[in-house]
């Protein structure tokens, strides 16, 4: 009886120590689920979801506070990926958060820019360069098309220009079998 108790107690101590060691040694920093969700989000940092950036929205989704259909730039495909990852039901993009638009880039009209730096402060990814009373310009390669610079401009000199397809971004189309009407005799 006593031997059995001792064996069980020893077993509990050993396993407890092993678990305690593992908890310290293999500790996971951060929330891996948030990271995974963040990897799906388009990183426009536009805030249309109601959160101040993609990461906070990802964190809210991981906690179950936010729905998966609040990201217009991610579009339908993004919602499907999120539904897959989180095991939730697919639902169409929520209308109150916006509509899916083709990717566009901000372009500053240099004639109208007064150099107020408001757009520079609004840009979440530092894609606008300029200085006070100097003309500003957008680094096209870094612009995510979030439109945050558009409302802050006091002279309305920023336009969102849709990105046109060019030779290098052109994609082969899905091979479609053309169905032709058969003329009966």
């Amino acid at each position: 009886m006593l031997a059995a108790l001792l064996v069980m107690a020893l077993g509990a101590v050993v396993l407890g120590a092993a678990l305690g060691f593992a908890a310290v040694k293999f500790r996971v920093e951060g929330d891996p689920l948030t990271e995974k969700i963040d990897a799906i989000l388009p990183q426009t940092q536009c805030g249309q979801c109601g959160y101040p950036g993609c990461k906070p929205y990802a964190a809210a989704m991981a906690k179950g506070e936010a729905d998966i259909n609040q990201c217009p730039p991610g579009g339908d495909e993004g919602i499907r990926k999120l539904a897959d990852l989180l095991g939730r039901e697919y639902k169409p993009l929520s209308a109150e958060h916006g509509v899916e638009k083709p990717k566009a880039l901000a372009v500053i009209d240099e004639q109208r820019c007064i150099g107020c730096t408001l757009c520079i402060q609004a840009c979440p990814v530092d894609a606008i360069v300029g200085a006070a009373k100097q003309m500003h310009t957008v680094i096209a390669a870094q612009c995510t098309g979030c439109e945050l610079c558009v409302p802050v401009c006091p002279v309305d000199c920023i336009d969102m220009v849709p990105v046109a397809e060019n030779i290098t971004t052109w994609k082969w189309k899905y091979p479609v079998v053309a169905i032709k009407p058969v003329t009966t005799q």
């Binding site: 990183q43 940092q45 990461k55 530092d126 894609a127 870094q142 995510t144």
Partner: peptide
């Protein structure tokens, strides 16, 4: 592009 934007955003 998304990874670059994330990096820029986090740096900002």
């Amino acid at each position: 592009a998304a990874d670059q934007a994330r990096e820029q955003y986090e740096f900002r």
